[in-house]
């Protein structure tokens, strides 16, 4: 608890951006409907830009479905979009439009991204997609995720300030020790 470490190692199964062997690995456990995650979304983008090839970013699902009624479905839609090679496009779309995550809006986003909507809907209903989200969530809980967003930097939970400037300097500090 006090020294929370990522229990599920980053693997090929994860959705990631940046080089596979980057010295810094940032894992976010997030919820598409969580306003704090929405706030973190552009910050992560800026961090990626600033750190370039030194950063690998992984997103895992942690939908708080009891308080965010559309979060679980949104997570499944992003996972389903992955089967058409558009996980990140959907991930970005969902955070940019996080105030509108009802089923109809999700369909519109899928169309906008040029996805096969019928295939997407079919995938959303698949047990494999549901399991994927559940596995992310359970792994997060076991790793000490206590809310969203929760970040891990090179496997250690980051409890510091995640506004851009302090987060960037914390990441640079870790980078200096790698």
């Amino acid at each position: 608890m006090s020294s929370s470490h990522l229990k599920i190692a980053v693997s090929k199964e994860d959705h990631f951006q940046g080089p596979d062997n980057a010295p810094l690995v940032l894992v976010e456990y997030g919820d598409y409907q969580c306003p704090h995650c929405g706030h973190a979304y552009p910050i992560v983008k800026r961090l990626q830009k600033a750190l370039g090839d030194q950063l690998k970013f992984v997103f895992r699902n942690f939908p708080l479905s009891e308080i965010h009624q559309d979060a679980l479905n949104a997570a499944k839609v992003a996972e389903a979009a992955a089967s058409q090679g558009k996980f990140w496009e959907m991930h970005d779309m969902l955070f940019e439009k996080q105030l509108h995550l009802d089923v109809e809006s999700l369909g519109n986003y899928a169309e906008k991204l040029g996805l096969d909507v019928e295939a997407l809907n079919e995938a959303v209903g698949k047990a494999s997609v549901e399991n994927r989200v559940e596995t992310d969530f359970e792994g997060g809980v076991r790793s000490g995720v206590n809310g969203t967003p929760t970040f891990f930097v090179n496997g250690v939970r980051y409890d510091g300030d995640w506004e851009y400037a302090p987060f960037l300097s914390a990441l640079k500090e870790v980078l200096g020790k790698v």
Binding site: M1, S4, K7, V141, R142, S143, G144, V145, N146, G147
Partner: peptide, 10 residues
């Protein structure tokens, strides 16, 4: 500090 649920589950 929110202690999370990992200790409980362990």
């Amino acid at each position: 500090v929110n202690p999370g649920a990992d200790g409980i589950l362990d």
